[in-house]
Design a protein around this nucleic acid. Structure first.
Lengths: 211, 211
DNA sequence: TCCGGATTGTGAATTATTTCACATTCATTT
DNA sequence: AAATGAATGTGAAATAATTCACAATCCGGA
């Protein structure tokens, strides 16, 4: 009877926020921060913050607060960004190329190695420093360049095919922007991202309020 | 003592998924669907689906299922997309221009009217059929063209200034891609969208599993 | 070395969300 | 018109997440 500690989904999604705030504090040369201060800057309650961190260990100093550098390193480890991840993007359309050039990733140890597309008109071009390659080269590229994560930015109807390709190539994590569920083996993790959800949530609240 | 029905956040975020599945069914000329079927296609349990819909009314036919067209219309109304929304995007960088051209919006009655940027090098150009205008023209444009929603895709440090501008222009809904909290009056709704969260969530799960 | 002030870490209480299970209701058949 | 079968709608139960509140502990000063 080992009791498995289950970490709430929402806790994980708040860690990147804490991380970012800690980075700011670090740049401001702040070396110690209380849960009250860190929570306020992150937009959560201080008990929420402390509970979130408590799932992973005891990182604070009672009576004092948290050492910014130390906590930063701990969150880095929890989020798995103390190591580098390399990723490829399938679909060199608007979204794929925008993501490829997005600077937010590099800041977190994430390197976009290549884009892939079935359209020969896009192949061979460069998006910034990143090459656009034929989709059929994905498997070889992934294996040669030690890639771990695949990003899907192709149209919905092509998403399952691309996912299958990524699974066969050995990728263990898929970040899926196509608005469809995809089927993958149990050892592959899929993270869904649906931009329309956010906008329609806003639309819903707006239209409620204007009613 | 009127009991206020509070609708779970998560319920709202599932409606766009149901909507999309219903659209597919509609294209497949399916006119009646059971909660089991609709739920399975949406990746939720059937009781979840029924409970979600029950917050808004009784839309089904006991013993039979849901009329696809009727439910589609009801969800359209709940999400506020039975009317048209017009939006402007502040920040004509990678993300802003990618969003401007994203076809997913038009499909939901959302029209991107213009992009705004402080960089004169970007002003005057067109992104598809959408003009890129100077940031100082935002207020006038919003008022002349009856815009309701503002999208922020500028760097974090510029986000608050842009939000202030949008508030002054009279926008009541803001979709914020900048990774910072912004301060707005109570009558303005802010929807946050942080792409890094999804990727770092994936990174976390991956690194746990590889441990 | 002891004391006072401050802040963490965490069980317990509360609140929110999901699932269960079945009474209710509707369409269809006889 | 009544009986049958099927699937919704929904209170109640179970589970999950958040907040509360305070004991535990640490820092710094006397």
């Amino acid at each position: 009877m080992t009791d498995v500690v289950v970490i709430p989904r929402a806790t994980i999604s708040r860690l990147p926020v804490y991380f970012r705030v800690l980075m700011e504090l670090s740049h401001m040369e702040v070396s110690l921060v209380s849960s009250d201060e860190l929570a306020a800057r992150s937009g959560v309650s201080s008990s929420q913050l402390r509970k979130d961190l408590s799932y992973f260990g005891e990182f604070g100093i009672r009576g004092a607060g948290y050492d910014v550098g130390f906590l930063l390193q701990k969150i880095r480890e929890i989020l798995g960004i103390h190591r580098e991840w390399r990723l490829v993007i399938a679909g060199a359309g608007k979204l794929g190329t925008a993501l490829a050039r997005y600077s937010g990733f590099a800041q977190h140890g994430l390197e976009v190695a290549a884009l892939f597309d079935i359209d020969p008109g896009k192949q061979g071009k460069m998006t910034g420093k990143i090459p656009v390659l034929p989709m059929e080269d994905l498997t070889g590229f992934v294996q040669e360049h030690d890639i771990q994560i695949g990003v899907i930015t192709v149209p919905a109807q092509a998403a399952q095919g691309v996912a299958d390709l990524m699974v066969r190539a050995g990728l263990k994590g898929i970040w899926n922007f196509a608005p469809v569920r995809i089927e993958v083996p149990d050892d592959v993790i899929v993270q869904y991202e649906d931009l329309v959800v956010g906008l329609l949530t806003l639309s819903h609240h707006l239209s409620r309020r204007m009613r």
